[in-house]
Design a protein around this nucleic acid. Structure first.
Lengths: 186, 186
DNA sequence: GTCTATAAATGGATAGAC
DNA sequence: GTCTATCCATTTATAGAC
């Protein structure tokens, strides 16, 4: 893997640990055994790295969704796989999802990064909404007037539980999502 | 108001705008017209200020809950008042709730601050859970096995919607909480 | 309680040699 | 592509005079 790719992969890891403002070019250089100046050669401004990380996050989501679509045996099973992956990648090793990580430093993001972040959110909401609609069609979920609001409710519950779970433990996550399941399943 | 109180009040404002790591002693000193050294005299380490801010947040929550309990005409109305206040203090003037603001910089908080934060979360969850129980008793809400999980679902939905709402607008907040209302009310 | 002065570290960024 | 060297601003924190 070339240096440029290594920088993105490593940054993605630190992004999910500490947020976009939580790691520096010095951190990157030290862990890769190169100098700060070399990192700047590949990504002159940190905003450039930020946009590359948004692309990385998009592919990260895309791969997950394709996998859940392919292996999910029902609408709820697809959501269950989403939750299992979220739990493993978050509380499992004390990291955030990349989207939450960007929101952490929202006030300091440039306008292009904010737009990329909105697109990321919509991409995730689109997938959840699609699964919710499938679940209503198949009769697995109670019919709702506003499937996108239901998708938002699901995402916020999941991410909030992961966010708080870093301090309160994973039981809170399991109990919260079990409550959600109980409310929407027929 | 004496200097020490002014420091806490001003810090609380900046905390909700930018998170705990998002403001500095220089910011405080400039806005109060004193020097950094004077700020350090009142709160030697930033962690000392952080603990004072946790106390401030506790009183902030306490006053809100007392107000909602006193004026709420039903269980749902109490939650509605909570939501209205949250919306006003968050998307209204582009601020976060103090708890979310601390979570923003979770990785950098000292252990005593993390413990204070857990206590804050529990205090908020306790109040919501109590209202959920009242609503079930009175028949306003569907009965649930785990009222604390329902309280967590409510809080995460609300805070997530506020968090995302900073980029996606307040409609997302209204739609999400309307969906929650629809799922729990009889 | 407030000030001046200062320290040591970090963060983002650039110029220019190899 | 990588390095050395450097710049400038910021952040937390302390010592000591008034």
């Amino acid at each position: 893997m070339n240096t440029k790719q290594q920088i993105v992969e490593l940054s993605a890891d630190m992004l999910r640990s500490s947020g976009f403002g939580g790691f520096s070019y010095l951190d990157i250089s030290r862990k890769l055994g190169i100098t700060k100046a070399s990192v700047h050669h590949h990504y002159p401004k940190k905003q450039d790295l930020g946009l590359a990380l948004c692309e990385w996050a998009h592919e990260w989501l895309q791969q997950g969704f394709e996998h859940f679509d392919e292996h999910g045996t029902s609408s709820w099973n697809k959501l269950e796989r989403y939750l299992r992956a979220a739990l493993k990648h978050s509380l499992g090793d004390q990291k955030m999802c990349p989207i939450s990580a960007f929101y952490n430093d929202l006030a300091k993001l440039s306008q292009p990064m904010k737009e990329a972040l909105i697109a990321l959110d919509d991409y995730e909401l689109d997938w959840i909404e699609k699964v919710m609609l499938q679940g209503m069609e198949s009769g697995d979920f109670h019919r709702q007037e506003d499937p996108r609001a239901l998708a938002a409710l699901f995402i916020f519950s999941c991410k909030g539980a992961l966010y708080y779970g870093r301090l309160h433990g994973k039981d809170l996550f399991h109990q919260t999502m079990k409550q959600f399941e109980h409310l929407i399943k027929t």
